[in-house]
Design a protein around this nucleic acid. Sequence first.
DNA 1: GCTTTCTTGACTAATGTTGACTAATATTAT
DNA 2: ATAATATTAGTCAACATTAGTCAAGAAAGC
Lengths: 155, 155
Amino acid sequence: MENQNISDIIESYLKQILAESQQVEIRRAEIADQFNVVPSQINYVIKTRFTIQDGYVVQSKRGGGGYIRIEKVKLLDNLDFIDSLVTAVGDHISRHDGLAVVRSLFEAGAVSRREVNIILAAIDKDAINTGDRDLDQQIRARVLISILNHLRYES
Amino acid sequence: MENQNISDIIESYLKQILAESQQVEIRRAEIADQFNVVPSQINYVIKTRFTIQDGYVVQSKRGGGGYIRIEKVKLLDNLDFIDSLVTAVGDHISRHDGLAVVRSLFEAGAVSRREVNIILAAIDKDAINTGDRDLDQQIRARVLISILNHLRYES
DNA sequence: GCTTTCTTGACTAATGTTGACTAATATTAT
DNA sequence: ATAATATTAGTCAACATTAGTCAAGAAAGC
């Protein structure tokens, strides 16, 4: 209770709203003003406390009428499995190893055969081909992890 | 939740009409007046929210009796649907336009909601993020086209 | 002390709004 | 018919309004 930093307080404030509502939509500058912090601190709070691992999905829009929307999502019970695959992918991955990850997903029943083909198309060598082999593997890793993260919850 | 900006409001207004009618025909100045904006804002709304990727075709005429007509097109009727999307994607595509393409796929019944999420995850900004925006758009285009091509074989 | 987390602000990016100018089409005058 | 004028829509660039990124420094934990 004591010695709470401002990020924790903002986190609590948002989660209090989310306890009664499926989602919360804010104007960044407004909340920053309300808690007397710089706007970018709101990004920090969201980035550190409202991740997909925590069960939150965040959307935003800039410009007039812009907003940040935090949505609470239902996490599936495959979390440990997804975690292990995310770890396996790491920050770069070859096509061959990527294939193995996707095959694991299929064998675990996490994705259908059609979905396998979509994922494979996304990480295909013709799709991701910058001419820089190392960069390709990094992009492939990010694409795969992004997909894995979306398989954590039902939308 | 509130649509704060006027462009969203005008978009909603037009789409509400399009929900019950195949097309809507407006006089630009009239709508601009109705929503208290400058006429060119109507062009902005149409350009950003009623693209072919979104499944709309826009025709207009100037001069006396001029009009802007927005027509909702049935993508399923188009046998070369995937082709048209591939063309629309081109050799580079923004996240915004990519989203529209995926939405079209879904509305055409070419992919399920689950598959939509997988594809969106694959072309997400966190997934494809080399630090070079141009390169990102190129990769996003290739990934999308790779997926589109695989969908062509499956269906 | 060293490491991690938090705070801050300068800079960047995306999106929306406005108005001056241009272009196309229709109507009217000659 | 042709030219002049009126009536529409289109383009573009400046400006406004939001959110995002990043890195430096401060504070807290160990």
